[in-house]
Nucleic acid binder design. Sequence first.
DNA 1: CGCGACGTTGATTTGCCTCAACGATTGTGG
DNA 2: CCACAATCGTTGAGGCAAATCAACGTCGCG
Lengths: 193, 193
Amino acid sequence: MHTIISEIFHGLSFTTEEINLLCSKLKKSTIDKNSFLLKEDDEVYDMFYVHKGCLRSYLIDRDGKEHILQFAVKGWWISDYISLYGRHKKLSVSNVECIKTATIYSISKAEFDMLCREIPKVAYFHIKKMELAFASFQNRILENLSLSATQRYVNFVETYPTIVNDVKNYHIASYLGITTESLSRIRTELSAR
Amino acid sequence: MHTIISEIFHGLSFTTEEINLLCSKLKKSTIDKNSFLLKEDDEVYDMFYVHKGCLRSYLIDRDGKEHILQFAVKGWWISDYISLYGRHKKLSVSNVECIKTATIYSISKAEFDMLCREIPKVAYFHIKKMELAFASFQNRILENLSLSATQRYVNFVETYPTIVNDVKNYHIASYLGITTESLSRIRTELSAR
DNA sequence: CGCGACGTTGATTTGCCTCAACGATTGTGG
DNA sequence: CCACAATCGTTGAGGCAAATCAACGTCGCG
């Protein structure tokens, strides 16, 4: 249990008391493939750290089409951030599904906030994580605005080679905002050089 | 000078010492329309709080096309977050330009980090701000994935009526990822009901 | 084996882009 | 204060990337 703390808060060192506090808030669980951590209209309180496996968060639009917001593999946190972090929201607008059998550690946002206040270095660590996410969000928006589907696919494969192994092609298509048919054509085109 | 602190950190209250510290780090300046706070390849150290006026951050792709990442009006912070928050970056990849004559307060990221450590409530305030931004980024990505150009325009106008007054149509087009011609057609289409 | 999930391929459609020309509006110097 | 230019917005014709619709191949698994 000690080791998971240094995995989650990599680079930080804690007193025994701090470790005990952290451990008391993080609940370990194993998640089966195809099961859900969150479904639309659920109440959202928790965020999930992925130690093993792979999950995705996605949303279904009015036309019934799925759009993947995020994948999460080892080292990532996942939840319905639109609800959890948003201004007025309470119920989940998105779904969090396990794609590959996973081991996760859950904590409620309220408890996490409390940890940030009890242990300031956790807060600074969180800020740094958020800043990195901030930069990569801007990058993703920029790519959506400026790149062709082919270029976005190439970038995705280069940036997240680990994820590519864990997910189906139609998941990648959904993340990139294209159809499975288009992705298929892109892939044959690319393999033909 | 006291009032700007309670504008920037709305909802927090500070001791006189804290206010003095905060004020000593925030540099006020007036920015002319069409001038730049940052240009591509500049070294990026600072972030900018907008008290008045309007700015935009944008990027130029390989084809020479501009893509707007962010607008900033009263109450918003703006910078080149890809460089400032990113992992390995140093030089600016984007441009920050004044669209409407502005009054801003600048602070370096290093000094801001220091303030977060000196005054913990500033850190918690910052976390909350980042979380809100996080949620709205996810929303923007989702809209780019799932909505038509027309729907994104309607959403933009509803969500940011203030900004619409300050910026040109071709700025909105660039933010939405469409051409000015397309936006023009969308607008005539909408006004015809 | 047979069925469902996944991926591919083809024909056609469509939303938005490109290129080009032309109004409308704003700003500036004489 | 007008004249003219630059900037901004609109309109039209044609093109292209990706979507849609439909059918079929392939793989893995009960």
